[in-house]
Design a protein around this nucleic acid. Structure first.
Length: 481
RNA sequence: CGGGGUGUAGCGCAGCUUGGUAGCGCGCCUGCUUUGGGAGCAGGAGGUCCCCGGUUCGAGUCCGGGCACCCCGACCA
């Protein structure tokens, strides 16, 4: 393997200063930049292209499960915001308010949406009259604002992009099925498109969404052992339906409150991609959402060679259009510079095309993840490159799983967590009695919060890691973003 | 909201102790030579030294006040 030490000196060492590494990577690879507005960021074209690919993957899955898109206003009247007590209490500290517009004080303050339950469900109360109107399955792609005190690129900014699905159902069972179905859509999307292994589970009461009866989550482990909530799906029971008066005449002629859900994933996932796959050379884009899956680096010494290489590159680009997302770097930089540049920016595959290759009717493919080189006949690129991209995806997913497994411990006491956290962070599986007191004790002692009660892999009998009472469930603890 | 740090060219920084022509590296522009793992030479452009006030013949530098941003912590769907 090529020695790559010292090539990317603009980026802090990942092991040396993880958060500086993360910030450097984002700025240097032009994913995003700080904005003139404190706590807000600009998503640059390279980052936005990534987001568009992620959107496409999610949107197709939402459509395939029967959902349609719509768009609701950014502003929420205070009276609507206040209708569900727990909900407003949960978001109050980070709500921005518009009190004046057009040179006049508003009669009613308008909140800038932190999430859209209030505005969407108030509309649903008009639209839902009969059991024949159900289920109502709507998603929206939008920006939301939460006035965070402490911000971090992609992971916690005051404004961010996301999607939020809001559905209404006739029965509790249907609503719960929807909640779990969409949670699994997030899991499948994360693994299939982002090469990001996640754990499905339920949130504790302390960690659940403000106003939800139950919150489910997919949790991923970042490269520093901290947890990232990669997507959530909420079961509201009939709480919001009662607050917003969403009721319908059922088949038996009885008027009943509906059952509602919501589920969301955001640009935070981009932060997850960076932290899960990146290394000291920079980004590593999961092939299926990478803005450029293959970057061609042309090599030549003079005009004659340049024109021969140009022809070959044109032919290759023609052949591959539609099969892979391809970009050719015709900048004036030297090839070596381009190799480093595109490794830093995480292109999954580099294709070198030089005079020697043209003479032999081939091109040299180099993988970002392993830096393995392979000479491929030009005629065979259309078949071989997608194969390699799939291999890269698989090995990235495998590596992320192996990393998570190597940083996961089964423990029986909170002291074990504290002890291990001194050395290395990760996920801690432990029996938990269900008490918020014990959950709080773990946080106070170790800084780790309860990430979820996993669907699979837990033990249903044990003694609580804190109080030693009988515990019929297992919880996963960890530091989180 | 608390603690720390930093504001000087697009970026990274030096200069401030001891006041006196605003500098360095990278990047950028032009030309020539280069190009298979971050090229070389030559020439060139680019400044509200964060802002306001004070001291002084003279302030990037000293004094006072303010602002902004970054990092750490608390808080946080």
């Amino acid at each position: 393997m090529t020695d790559v030490s010292g090539f990317v000196d603009q980026i802090a060492d990942k092991s040396d200063d993880y958060s500086q590494w993360y910030t450097d990577v984002i700025l240097k690879t032009k994913l995003a930049d700080y904005s003139p507005v404190r706590g807000c960021m600009v998503i640059r074209p390279y980052g936005y292209a990534l987001w568009e690919n992620m959107q496409a993957g999610l949107d197709a899955r939402f459509k395939a499960t029967g959902h349609v898109n719509a768009y609701f206003p950014l502003f929420i009247p205070e009276s609507l915001m206040k209708k569900e007590a727990e909900h407003v209490a949960g978001f109050a500290p980070e709500l921005p308010w518009i009190t004046e517009a057009g040179g006049e004080k508003l009669e009613e303050r308008l909140a800038i949406r932190p999430t859209s339950e209030a505005i969407i469900l108030s509309m649903y109360s008009k639209w839902v009259q009969s059991w024949r109107d159900l289920p109502l399955l709507i998603n929206q792609w939008a920006n939301v604002v939460r006035w965070e005190k402490r911000t971090y690129l992609f992971l916690r900014t005051r404004e961010f992009l996301w999607q939020e699905g809001h559905t209404v159902h006739r029965t509790e069972q249907e609503a719960m099925e929807e909640v779990l179905r969409m949670l699994d859509v997030y899991r499948e999307f994360a693994e299939t498109e982002l090469a990001m292994p996640v754990i499905r589970g339920r949130k504790s009461d302390a960690e659940k969404f403000a106003g939800a009866a139950a919150t489910f989550t997919v949790e991923a482990m970042m490269g520093d052992g901290k947890a990232l909530q990669a997507g959530t799906s909420h079961f509201f029971a009939q709480r919001f339906a009662e607050a917003f008066n969403i009721s319908f005449l059922d088949m038996d002629g009885e008027r009943r409150f509906a059952w509602t859900t919501s589920w969301g994933a955001s640009t935070r996932l981009i932060g997850g991609i960076i932290m899960m796959h990146g290394d000291d050379s920079g980004l590593m884009m999961p092939p299926r959402v990478a803005p450029f899956q293959v970057v061609i680096v042309p090599i030549f010494r003079n005009d004659d060679e340049r024109s021969r290489v140009y022809e070959a590159v044109q032919a290759i680009t023609r052949d591959l259009t539609g099969a892979v997302r391809i970009h050719t770097d015709w900048s004036d930089n030297k090839p070596g510079w381009k190799y480093n540049e595109w490794e830093m920016r995480g292109a999954p595959l580099r294709l070198e095309v030089g005079p020697r290759d043209v003479d032999q009717g081939q091109a040299v493919a180099v993988r970002r993840d392993s830096r393995a080189k392979e000479s491929i006949p030009i005629a065979g690129l259309g078949q071989r490159l997608p194969e390699i991209l799939d291999e890269v995806h698989r090995s990235m997913l495998d590596r992320a799983r192996a990393f998570r497994d190597a940083h996961t411990w089964t423990v029986s006491s909170v002291d074990e967590i504290a002890e291990q956290m001194e050395k290395e962070r990760g996920f801690f599986w432990a029996p938990w009695c269900g008490s918020p007191m014990c959950e709080g004790a773990v946080k106070a002692k170790t800084g780790a919060t309860l990430r979820c009660i996993p669907f699979e892999g837990g033990d249903d009998k044990g003694l609580c890691l804190v109080c030693k009472a009988t515990a019929d469930q297992t919880a996963i603890f960890g530091r989180s973003y």
